[in-house]
Computed example of a mutant assay.
Amino acid sequence: MSERHVTFDMIVQAVGAVAGITHHEIMVAGRAGADERVHLRYACWWLASKMTSLGPSAVGRLSGGRDHTMVIHGQRRAEELRATSESFRLSTDALLGTLQALERAGLLRFAVTIDPLATARRVLSAPEREAVRVSTYEIVAMSRLIVEQADGDPSEPSTEETAHAA
């Protein structure tokens, strides 16, 4: 695979779908269920090393601003977990195989990981312009970042939002 179409966001979404939790829950640091979330993060970082051309620094930035050394440590821990935990190895193998099959079948359209902050900076750099060309994917990436940064459950609108929409 010389041309990479799998993005880090796709990897995190796939891992989250399998685990039944959101992107935000995988990447947030906290005490409740911390070991499971840490292992899911390690799985994301290991898959990123296999499926993307992103380096540890870029993966760290996309993981909520984590340091590249933490990503490298997580990738090594994922390798250790794959050697010692059959369930971890089977789940990461299944995810890797699924993403590779989707990539081979041409069902993945993204060619690069979208940086929502870079998109926002591009939009804000020319406030005098009437329009700035922004793709749907960039809008989704910016929206996801905003929702993830908001307090509360990002999957459910607040009562204030619901009342305002009505």
Rank of each mutant, 00 (worst) to 15 (best):
L47I: 03
D9M: 01
A17P: 05
S57E: 12
A131G: 01
V123L: 06
E138Y: 08
A34Y: 07
V147K: 04
E138M: 10
K50E: 12
V18P: 07
A58M: 02
A29N: 12
A32P: 06
Q100I: 09
R122N: 06
G20M: 13
D9T: 09
A126F: 03
P56N: 08
P56Q: 00
M142W: 05
R144S: 02
D67G: 02
A43H: 07
T52H: 00
A111T: 15
G65F: 11
L47M: 07
S85C: 12
S158K: 05
G152A: 14
A118N: 06
M51N: 06
A48R: 03
A19I: 06
L117R: 09
G152T: 11
A131E: 09
I21T: 09
A131P: 01
A101S: 14
D35L: 12
G97P: 00
A17S: 14
H73A: 10
T84G: 03
A120K: 13
E160G: 02
A166Y: 12
A94L: 15
T113Q: 15
A58G: 03
S135V: 07
E138D: 12
L99I: 10
E103Q: 15
A150I: 04
H39T: 07
Q100G: 02
A29W: 08
A120F: 12
T162E: 04
D93V: 02
I139M: 14
L107M: 10
V112W: 11
G33P: 08
R77K: 13
R77Y: 02
A166E: 13
L145W: 03
T113R: 06
S49E: 01
V140P: 03
A32W: 05
Y42S: 02
S91F: 02
G64I: 04
R82P: 07
I21L: 05
G16E: 06
T159M: 10
Q149D: 11
L96M: 09
D93T: 01
A19L: 05
G20T: 13
A29T: 13
A111D: 15
C44T: 05
G20H: 13
D151R: 09
H23F: 13
D153E: 14
V123R: 01
W46M: 10
S135W: 02
M142F: 00
E80T: 12
E128V: 08
S91N: 09
A111N: 14
S158Y: 00
A48N: 03
E148Q: 09
P157H: 07
P56D: 05
M70T: 15
T22N: 05
G106R: 07
I26G: 01
S57C: 02
T159E: 13
V112G: 00
I114D: 00
I72A: 08
L124C: 11
D35G: 04
L108C: 11
S87T: 10
E148G: 13
T92A: 07
H39N: 12
M70R: 02
T136D: 09
A118V: 00
V18S: 12
T69Y: 09
D93L: 07
E161Q: 12
L62W: 00
D151T: 10
A58K: 08
F110S: 14
A17Q: 13
S2N: 04
M10A: 15
S155M: 13
E128D: 15
Q75A: 12
